[in-house]
Design a protein around this nucleic acid. Structure first.
Lengths: 232, 232
DNA sequence: CCAAAAAGAGAGCACTGCTCTTGCCAGGCG
DNA sequence: CGCCTGGCAAGAGCAGTGCTCTCTTTTTGG
C-alpha cells in the first residue's frame, strides 16, 4: 500500500501483522468470544498495554479479522468463478461458487460465525467491511451476468415484483453498472441470503437430526437455487 | 409442572423466574454479550453468589433464555398457523407463518440473534432446546401437510433427490409420522433454512444498501419459497 | 423444639478491556 | 558526530467479569 518510508514503519507493519496473525489463530480455535487481547499479547511476548499502540481496542482488532474473513471467503468464491470461466453450464458454475463458499466456511467455522453470525460488538459494521463483504455476492452476480450475456438466462416475470423492491433493485443495478433485468437481480439477492441461510443452519447445528448428508443436500439445494434464479 | 409442595418451592420458583425475567430484560436491550450475572443480581438486590443457587452457571441461564426464545418464536408461528386454519390459499398461509416469524424477530432482535446467530458458549446445544427449536419448522410443515391433504400440493420430481438426502428425509418423515413425499419434505427443509437466511441477513444488516423495502422483499420472497415447496 | 436443609452474604481468585505514568531507546535532524 | 524528541514497551492500576468457598441466617419438617 504505502511505500516503505523507514525501518520504523516496517517494524510497525510487521508487529501489526503478527498481532492479527496470532489473533486469527486464537479466533480459529476458540471462537470470537474467547479472543483476548491479553492472551494475544502474552503469546507474542509483549505486555497487554503495548498492544494498544497497534489496535486502539478489541473491537478494532475484530474488525480487522472481519475484513480478512470477508476477503478470504470472497477470494474462495472468486477462485471458483475463475476456474469455471468459459464453462457452458451456468448451473454448474453457480453450484461451484456456492460449494467454494461452503468449503471455506467448513474450514473456518469461527471466522464464518464472526461474519455471518450475530454481530459481536455494539454492532455497526464499519464502512471498511462493506466492500469485502460483497465479494461473494459479486461472484454470484458474475455467473448470472455471464449466463445472461450468453442468452442462457430465463428471466422471471417482471410484473410480480413489488414496487419498493423494484425501485431498490433498479438503483442497485445502477450502482453495479449491470443491465440484468430487475426481476433476475431481485431473485439473486434472495438467493444470496438463502444460500447463507443454508450454510448457517449447517454450521450452527440447526440441521442436527434433520439432514445428515449435508454435502449432498447443500449441492442439491444450491443447484435448485441457481435454477430458481433463472440459470440452466 | 410439579405440585406446590410448600412455600419454599414456591419462593424458589418465583426467584428463578425473576432472575430469568431480569436477564431477558438485559438481553433485550444490550445483547447476549453484555449479559452479566452480577448485573442481574445487582438489579434484583441480591449478591452475585446467591444467584448460583438458581442457575449453576451463566451458560445455564443463557440456555433457559434460548429455550424461551425458541418457544416464543414458535408460538408466534403457531398462532399465525391457527389464525389461517381453513384458509384455502396455502401460499397465503405459508406467507403468514413466515411473516409472523419475521415480526417476532424484528421485535426481539437480540433474542433472535441468540438462537439463530452464532452459538455463544463452547456450544453444544443442550437436548432441552431441540423440541422448542422445531416449532417454527413444524408450523411450516403443517401448512404443507394441510395443502397435501387438500390435494393442493405440487410434488417435485422424486428422481432428482440424491441418495443420502432421500434416506435422511424418509427417516425424518418416519419420526414425524407424516406421509408427505420425500421430495416435498426435502424442499421444505431447504426452504426452512432459507427463510432464516433471509431473516438473518435482514436483522444482521447484510441487506444494508442492497434492499431497503425489507418487508415487501421478505413477503415476496417468502411467497416464492412457498411456491417452490409446491404450494399454490 | 431442634436438627437438617436451604438460602444469603461476603471475601477472594483469576481473568478481562482499557488507561495512565514512567522510563528507555533509536531515528533523524542540526 | 551528538543530541533530542517521538515512538514504544513496561508496569501498575481501575472497574468489571464468572465462579468458588466459607460462614451465617433462615426456614422447614420430623
Amino acid at each position: 500500500m504505502t511505500a516503505i518510508r523507514g525501518a520504523r514503519e516496517r517494524a510497525r507493519a510487521e508487529v501489526t501483522a503478527a498481532i492479527k496473525e496470532e489473533a486469527r489463530r486464537q479466533l480459529a480455535d476458540q471462537g470470537a468470544a474467547k479472543l483476548s487481547l491479553r492472551a494475544v499479547a502474552r503469546e507474542l511476548g509483549m505486555v497487554s498495554s503495548a498492544l494498544y499502540r497497534y489496535y486502539p481496542s478489541r473491537d478494532e482488532l475484530l474488525t480487522a479479522l472481519i475484513v480478512d474473513a470477508y476477503d478470504a471467503i470472497g477470494a474462495a468464491a472468486e477462485a471458483a468463478l475463475a476456474a469455471t470461466r468459459g464453462d457452458d453450464d451456468p448451473v454448474a458454475r453457480w453450484t461451484a461458487v456456492c460449494r467454494a463458499a461452503r468449503a471455506w466456511a467448513l474450514a473456518h467455522p469461527h471466522e464464518y460465525a464472526l461474519i455471518y453470525g450475530s454481530p459481536v460488538p455494539g454492532y455497526s459494521a464499519p464502512q471498511a467491511t462493506v466492500a469485502p463483504a460483497s465479494r461473494v455476492a459479486l461472484a454470484l452476480i458474475a455467473v448470472v451476468r455471464d449466463a445472461y450475456a450468453a442468452g442462457a438466462l430465463r428471466v422471471p416475470e417482471e410484473a410480480e415484483l413489488p414496487e419498493g423492491v423494484r425501485a431498490d433493485i433498479t438503483a442497485l443495478a445502477d450502482t453495479l453498472g449491470t443491465e440484468l433485468p430487475a426481476a433476475a437481480l431481485a431473485a439473486l439477492a434472495a438467493a444470496w441470503a438463502q444460500l447463507f441461510g443454508l450454510l448457517s443452519f449447517e454450521l450452527f447445528g440447526q440441521f442436527q437430526g434433520v439432514v445428515e448428508a449435508r454435502e449432498e443436500f447443500f449441492t442439491h439445494t444450491a443447484a435448485a437455487l441457481g435454477r430458481h434464479v433463472g440459470l440452466g
